[in-house]
């Protein structure tokens, strides 16, 4: 076949976060490498349909982004501004520091999101790797989750968000040394990850290890191999 076909309804629907947001991977499904494109769906009204974020974070692609509401109706928030966004609304966010997000006003609201960095070769956003691993985490396949995230770490060895999520998989999968090393490195690169780790159940298996306290305190651990 000379053409790949899929529909919104056939895309994977991966739950992200605690506000009903569902990631519908388009770029990854079709193998697109020239630009970023994904869909996001809220199954119920009131749920998040665009994750509230800016494009400066360590998991972000640092992209300029275009959102198009393709189903339902959303309420967008850009910094302090809020507005109604029915089907056909296009929202272009050039400035990566703008905090953007949206909630669904109707069940099934879906937003198509596109992105890339002006003047630079497109690179896949780091978050895609650990979002793609969510179903494996949910299924208890922690080795599989780690295997999905590890190539992203090879591409971005100093990305604290990737390190942190890999450490989660390793902790749950019983890879204690690797988990502690990657968590320590994440904290070293981004001290905020120490706060994330304190209440993150993914680290319960290693929380009592004396090296855990050192890792979240920003004290480097030893042992284990780098991924």
């Amino acid at each position: 076949m000379s053409v790949h076909l899929t529909t919104l309804d056939e895309l994977d629907s991966i739950p992200v976060g605690d506000h009903g947001l569902r990631w519908r991977p388009v770029r990854r499904r079709l193998g697109i490498e020239g630009f970023g494109v994904n869909a996001w769906t809220a199954q119920e009204a009131g749920q998040e349909v665009v994750e509230h974020h800016d494009e400066t974070g360590t998991g972000a692609g640092k992209h300029e982004e275009l959102y198009i509401v393709v189903r339902g109706r959303a309420r967008f928030q850009l910094d302090d501004e809020e507005f109604d966004a029915p089907v056909g609304t296009c929202v272009f966010v050039r400035d990566r520091t703008v905090r953007r997000g949206a909630y669904a006003e109707e069940a099934g609201t879906t937003v198509l999101a596109m992105g890339g960095k002006p003047g630079e070769v497109f690179e896949v956003s780091p978050w895609e790797s650990y979002f793609a691993a969510i179903p494996l985490f949910a299924a208890g396949d922690y080795d599989g989750a780690g295997a999905l995230i590890r190539p992203e770490l090879e591409r971005n060895p100093d990305n604290p968000s990737v390190l942190y999520n890999l450490a989660c998989a390793e902790s749950l999968g019983g890879r204690v040394d690797e988990a502690l090393e990657h968590l320590a490195r994440a904290v070293e690169l981004n001290p905020a990850t120490a706060e994330w780790a304190r209440d993150d159940k993914d680290f319960d298996p290693i929380r009592e290890d004396p090296r855990f306290a050192s890792a979240v305190a920003g004290e480097a651990t030893t042992g284990g191999e780098s991924a």
Binding site: S2, V3, H4, T6, V26
Partner: peptide
């Protein structure tokens, strides 16, 4: 129609030719 192959595409369909030369 992609390289002679006809495809019905209702609303919600993504169509992605697998090669720029198509």
């Amino acid at each position: 129609t992609v390289d002679g192959e006809e495809v019905d595409a209702p609303a919600g369909t993504f169509v992605y030719p697998d090669d720029p030369a198509r």
